[in-house]
């Protein structure tokens, strides 16, 4: 097995075993999605309209919740030093960690969203659009969030500042993601999923470089 895949597998195991943040992020997602109908009322017509927006926002927040530890846990216990000295480049380390985060958070969030969509009364076509948009868009959230996690590595309350610096960068994902669902509901032809795919591809391709630059900066201390 290649070193990159080893690192992904190790981070996945860490995320899933006790103390990892993956389960917590999923629970947070489900809790927010449950709370919103309690706040706005059980009107299914309204819930159908806001379903995509609510689930997308909740998914982004849940993903960010578990992102602040992406590099920090390994930074604090010295593992990141050892990774930086390994034959893997820091860019590859960042890519592996982003991939592991998506596999442990973005992917299960997408699956749970499919169930929650039913609770919001989303028709089958809308649910398909939602699942597709989450599947395509959440890698961008992990990737851009990874930049934020790398930059806030050395800050003690980094978890608080991370969502703030990352949210404007993630706005296009939320816009295209929930837009794809709304356009589907309204029977509009639109390129939202294509825009989302292009953005996601760009984010995943470029983020490891920015994240590695952030990690390098913080290791030099």
């Amino acid at each position: 097995m290649s070193a990159l895949r080893r690192l992904v597998a190790r981070d996945l195991v860490l995320a899933i075993r006790a103390g990892g943040g993956a389960a917590l992020a999923l629970a947070f997602f489900a809790a927010v999605a449950t709370l919103v109908p309690l706040g706005v009322g059980p009107d299914l017509k309204l819930l159908v309209r806001i379903a995509a927006g609510v689930l997308w926002v909740a998914a982004v927040l849940a993903a960010l919740l578990s992102l602040d530890r992406l590099f920090q846990a390994d930074f604090e216990d010295g593992s990141l030093d050892l990774m930086a000295l390994s034959p893997l480049s820091l860019e590859a380390v960042a890519l592996a960690k982003i991939a592991a985060h998506w596999l442990s958070t973005g992917l299960p969030l997408t699956l749970i969203a499919a169930v929650l969509a039913v609770a919001y009364g989303l028709p089958a076509s809308g649910t398909v659009a939602l699942v597709a948009s989450l599947l395509i868009g959440t890698p961008a959230v992990s990737a851009i969030g990874g930049i934020g996690a790398a930059l806030t590595l050395s800050i003690r309350r980094g978890g608080l500042i991370l969502p703030f610096i990352v949210l404007p960068l993630i706005a296009p994902v939320v816009i295209f993601g929930s837009g794809a669902v709304l356009a589907e509901l309204d029977g509009l032809a639109n390129g939202a999923l294509w825009f989302l795919a292009a953005f996601s591809l760009l984010a995943v391709a470029l983020s490891p470089f920015a994240a590695a630059a952030g990690v390098r900066l913080n290791l030099g201390s």
Binding site: V13, G19, D74, D77, G78, S79
Partner: peptide, 9 residues
Amino acid sequence: HQDAVKPQL
């Protein structure tokens, strides 16, 4: 000076 030992592994 840190051991880089993961509690879960």
